[in-house]
Design a protein around this nucleic acid. Structure first.
Lengths: 146, 146
DNA sequence: AATGAAATTGTATAAAT
DNA sequence: ATTTATACAATTTCATT
């Protein structure tokens, strides 16, 4: 029993509001709170639920710019970059990808000057391409089980 | 009083574990749980905290592939696409961006066949470029207040 | 804006089905 | 694997500072 209909409903609740109480989830899915608690614990242990995060507004925290930056690493510079990128506070998300570019990053920045300074840090690792985010079309969505 | 040292600490807790109890947060930051509760409520009302989400493993839900897909919309096709993209379950994140491409999407897919079918849906809206995600270098990180 | 106290609600554990 | 019962803990509300 990994992902029956009940667990799917529980996941849906937690993806909508991770701070919902077990009791409230129980009411919505039709079981008691100890049962909810056990199912959640099991899904955490199995790695189905990875973590619970508060999503904080970058703008409200003082970051006026968001950008998607891709990096095409120079010969021998990819590994050093993979170590370095973990230390950048600006990088909120980073994937290694196939294709001409090796890396795609989601970056938050205070202003254009901050962007300039940040890009300057990258040039020793490779060629970058920067795309400024104009708007969020789809809000980070919960993943639907198949 | 929007983001004093206490609120910054509270945000840090909630970004690490959104299901942490108010009492536990209070212990960590040195105030009582009603005070925590009130501060959190205020940050929610001000839009500093946008939402609380369980992060669920796409792989465990049956999605073996993740891709970054950019779209360069055809003349007059951007607006129709912006409406349509909200309906795609595969798209977990989507930004409108500056540059040659208009859109960048983070997409989860069952397999290569699913990817093929998905890309086929996009061709009426514009030219696409697909980059398969090999690994996550930086896990979705909490944003640090300035 | 924070605390302390009281009432309500939620959680954890164990026993039973 | 879920429920019920129970003890413990957390939350909410409100009066107080």
């Amino acid at each position: 029993m990994k992902l029956d209909a009940l667990n799917v409903k529980i996941l849906k609740c937690l993806q909508q509001n991770a701070r919902m109480s077990n009791a409230e989830i129980g009411r919505q899915v039709g079981i008691t709170s100890p049962a909810v608690s056990e199912r959640i614990k099991k899904m955490e242990d199995l790695g189905i639920i990875e973590e619970y995060k508060a999503i904080v507004s970058p703008f409200e925290l003082g970051y006026q710019l968001k950008a998607i930056i891709t990096l095409r690493a120079f010969m021998g510079k990819l590994k050093p970059f993979l170590d370095k990128v973990k230390t950048y506070d600006e990088v909120v998300n980073c994937y290694r990808i196939t294709g001409d570019e090796n890396i795609v990053m989601e970056v938050v920045l205070k202003n254009h000057k901050h962007l300039e300074v940040f890009i300057d840090q990258l040039i020793s690792y490779g060629e970058t391409k920067t795309q400024i985010v104009l708007s969020r079309v789809v809000k980070q969505k919960g993943i639907k089980p198949i």
